[in-house]
Amino acid sequence: MYHKTLSYRIFNTLNTSGLILLAIVCIIPLWHVLAISFSAKSAADANLVGLWPVDFTTEAYKKTINNPVFLGSILVSIKRTIIGTAITLVLAFLAAYPLSKESTVFKARTIYAWIFVFTMVFNGGLVPFYIVIQKLHLMNSFWVLVLPGAVNVYLTILMLNFFRGIPKELEEAALIDGAGHFRTLFTIFLPVSLPAIATLALFSMVFHWNSWFDGLLYLHDAKSQPLATFLQTVVIQRDMSTMSMSPKEMELLSQKTVNAAQIFIGALPILVVYPFLQKYFVKGLVLGSVKE
């Protein structure tokens, strides 16, 4: 048994401490942002905050919570993430199944596959996209956040590759039993691809949670815009040389502490969801148990 050997134990200790160190290096920036969010404004503006708040205050959070636009945008983001992820998953799950077939079984698959991949690399740019959105009357509608990006080719291809890893015998047995392709997909493939679906869901959720440009351009009302759009408008640094502002306005623009609080609250939901999805791809129970 390798677990007992000395070299393995040494490796294990080194590995564990190394990875923990790495984890700490990764948490520091967010920690720094958190420290700023709890600091006094004067210290934050002077860049005096390191890893611990200076003159601890929760003022920034009070201001954030009192901002109705911020809270409203969180709701929009949650709605878009749930609906958008659901649609993307269904489409990818459906399309990946036939695409995962050998071309001897499904001849057209290769054409379809390239039609899909082509869109990953080429796009018409902003102008025609805007016109399409307008012609479809999606402008200023919630669905503009969800429908245009509904097909995620990258995720479809990942799904397709996971399907290929599923033993052929499973599918053949089902087909021999007289099940159609749809039934095979939902009764045989669905349960064994939960780790893959969890992965896809995570990617799709992160994508929706972080997208800001569509909300900015296609939704006209700040109240209906998602959180990422809102955050983008507060974090970005602006060129002051072209317009005159009073010191009061400059102060409003440079609320480092409030921005930090908003960034932190903005990242929170996706961090909370992560551990729940994580369990699916940390251990490969599902597929293993089926195979036994």
């Binding site: 902003l126 102008v127 307008q134 200023n140 900015l216 351009l217 006209h220 009302d221 983008q232």
Partner: peptide, 20 residues
């Protein structure tokens, strides 16, 4: 229409509405 003017969004949107 209105747009929160960040990252040149107002200019982009004006150009887009000209074009479309």
């Amino acid at each position: 229409w209105s747009v929160t003017d960040t990252n040149g969004a107002y200019a982009t949107k004006l150009r887009l509405s000209l074009t479309s």
